[in-house]
């Protein structure tokens, strides 16, 4: 079983056309000829993920995000840092092969990042207004109670919230990663997503929620962090790959939330 064969099966089973123009969904380390002993899915190919995957004899890593700390895995940018050489050395030592699945994961139906995040934060599919809408209408609660519930269910230490904790909310739009949905829309009370800049972005963002809150409008913004938001769905990704790669073990090896918060 080679890495190339695994990727061929992924492409065949995707249910959506493969776009060769992607710079994201390519080999980031190693190549198609590498013999695969097992497959690890994860959010990021961290040093620690490499070590734990290797210890479990999973030498093919399929991350949703980057290996070398930028979206384009731009080795020219990081190549002079000794950490880059150390990471390459570690991956060579364990005969690691890395193939990223990002664009095609989001193009796939269902998009497992949403499936995993909804499961992780506790948004039951019976509350989704239409399949794939990622819009949930839950029994009315307060932003404070919702955020506490999401924090407890996800285990996110550094989850961040904007809005009045006492605001009454029920209409939630779920986003994933940096693809945070708009909040300045009348039919959404709360956006739950991974990451978005605080100001000066392409869209509205948390500063809109700050002003809405000052004006007494019930709006909320719950940022899980990028890893918490998108890593849950890598469990679904592992299960899906297992379905057509029965020859080797396939499992989620979590990068885990990177942050802690001071008291």
């Amino acid at each position: 079983m080679t890495a190339g064969e695994v990727i061929d099966r992924i492409k065949k089973n995707l249910g959506a056309p493969w776009r060769d123009t992607t710079y994201r969904d390519t080999f980031k380390f190693g190549g198609p000829e590498t013999v695969v002993t097992g497959i690890a899915t994860t959010a990021f190919v961290t040093l620690d993920v490499v070590k734990r995957a290797a210890a479990a004899r999973l030498n093919m890593i399929i991350p949703h995000e980057a290996t070398f700390w930028s979206d384009r895995d731009d080795t020219a940018l990081v190549g002079r840092d000794p950490l880059y050489a150390a990471k390459v050395e570690l991956m060579k030592k364990h005969d690691i092969v890395v193939f990223r699945i990002h664009d095609h994961m989001h193009a796939q139906r269902p998009d497992f990042t949403f499936v995993g995040s909804a499961r992780d934060v506790g948004l039951d599919s019976r509350y989704e207004t239409a399949p794939g809408s990622h819009r949930f209408v839950i029994p009315e609660t307060t932003l404070g109670a919702l955020a506490a519930d999401v924090k407890r269910k996800t285990g996110a230490r550094a989850l961040r919230v904007v809005g009045d904790p006492a605001a009454k909310v029920s209409r939630i739009q779920l986003g994933v990663g940096y693809a945070t949905p708009v909040i300045n829309t009348p039919d959404v009370d709360v956006v739950i997503s991974g990451e978005q800049q605080e100001a000066d972005g392409g869209f509205d963002g948390p500063s809109y929620v700050v002003d809405a809150t000052t004006l007494g409008l019930a709006k909320g913004w719950i940022m899980l962090g990028h890893v918490i938001s998108e890593e849950a769905g890598m469990l679904e990704m592992a299960a899906w790959i297992k379905g057509f790669v029965p020859e080797v073990p396939v499992q989620l090896v979590k990068a885990e939330e990177p942050f802690w918060i001071p008291n």
Binding site: F44, T46, L47, D48, E65, A66, W69, S70, D71, V78, L83, A86, K87, Y178, G194, E195, G225, H226, V227, P258, F259
Partner: peptide, 15 residues
């Protein structure tokens, strides 16, 4: 960006 400096710092620490 969390996929940039956050993951870099995490790996620096892990090293």
């Amino acid at each position: 960006r969390e996929w940039e400096s956050v993951e870099y710092a995490r790996d620096v620490v892990a090293s």
